[in-house]
């Protein structure tokens, strides 16, 4: 059956909404408020699952596999796939759809690729706003996928109701440093590619390492491409996300407010860098003609605490 206007109308409206909130301003805020009101009125409490991990760990494939299982159970599922924008050109190559099957005639699915744009972080500023819109459009399970890079992933931890860290079978000593930051905030760590040699060993290493600390995350051994352990992983996600109620939406608004503040600061930093004001100020500080204290206010318009 060919897709037609009727089939795609709702998805088109949502897609345009996300583009609109990618341009910050009063119109974007208005859209977000309307979406929040819709979700409140219709008691929509979507479960937002963050997926993060090193490039190549299989985040897109795992999100797609989880989405397939959830959709087969009748749930409405969305995937927001975030990839970095180039610092050089501002462009981005968003390639996650390669690993996500298209379902053109299924309005119970929605996939959107998002570039980080002005965010110097691995989470796009618009990510929280986009989840708020997707929730209001009636999707009850939303996967947000970001490339992981240590401490900066606190952003996705703030946004997600359940945070899933995805590891490849080669997870070992070299990536331990990266793991340290993110494992503290992970709800689940999934070792993917269980069909490959070394996956069981990586899982065992992780389990014995994490057993030493308190508040250890849940562990899973899965294969996204072979479909192994996916239903069980979804059950664990649901268990951890149960009972969140309106709390999830409050969390998303918190994440949006933080993103808006970061967006503002990032813009000020870009401006001060481009105009040369940053370098000029640094030169003055080095020469002793300007004090360090007060410089942040002068450059970026952020008030400094009195004892800073």
């Amino acid at each position: 059956m060919p897709v037609d206007a009727k089939h795609l109308a709702a998805r088109r409206e949502l897609a345009q909404g996300i583009s609109a909130v990618e341009r910050p301003g009063p119109a974007a805020n208005q859209r977000i408020q309307v979406a929040l009101a819709t979700s409140a009125a219709e008691a929509r409490n979507a479960l937002v699952v963050g997926l993060t991990g090193a490039p190549g760990a299989g985040k897109s494939s795992l999100a797609a596999a989880l989405a397939d299982v959830a959709r087969a159970a009748g749930r409405r599922v969305a995937i927001l796939a975030i990839d970095p924008s180039s610092h050089e050109s501002g462009g981005a190559l968003l390639g996650d759809r390669v690993r996500i099957d298209e379902h053109p005639d299924d309005d119970g699915r929605f996939t959107r690729s998002i570039a980080t744009r002005g965010s110097g972080r691995s989470l796009a500023h618009v990510a929280a706003a986009a989840t708020i819109l997707v929730e209001a459009a009636g999707f009850d399970l939303i996967f947000v996928e970001t490339v992981g890079a240590g401490q900066v992933e606190i952003g996705i931890a703030r946004l997600a109701d359940v945070l899933l860290v995805v590891e490849g079978p080669e997870g070992g000593d070299e990536v331990q440093a990266m793991k340290a930051g993110i494992l503290e905030v992970a709800d689940i760590v999934a070792v993917n590619k269980s069909d490959r040699p070394g996956a069981q060993a990586a899982f065992d290493r992780l389990r014995s390492g994490l057993a030493l600390g308190a508040g250890a995350p849940e562990l899973a051994l899965v294969s996204a491409t072979a479909g192994a352990g996916i239903s069980e992983l979804l059950a664990t996600i649901d268990e951890l996300g149960a009972g969140r109620g309106v709390r999830g939406r409050i969390r998303r608004v918190e994440a949006h407010l933080v993103a808006a503040a970061e967006s503002h600061v990032d813009a000020q930093v870009r401006e001060a860098t481009a105009s040369g004001a940053l370098t000029t100020r640094a030169e003055q500080i080095v020469a002793g003609t300007q004090p360090l204290t007060g410089s942040i206010t002068a450059l970026f318009g952020i008030s400094e605490s009195p004892d800073a």
């Binding site: 924008s85 180039s86 050089e88 050109s89 501002g90 462009g91 981005a92 190559l93 968003l94 390639g95 759809r97 390669v98 690729s113 570039a115």
Partner: peptide, 9 residues
């Protein structure tokens, strides 16, 4: 991408 476009492949 290098010309500043957001490319969905």
């Amino acid at each position: 991408r290098d010309e500043g476009f957001e490319v969905i492949y």
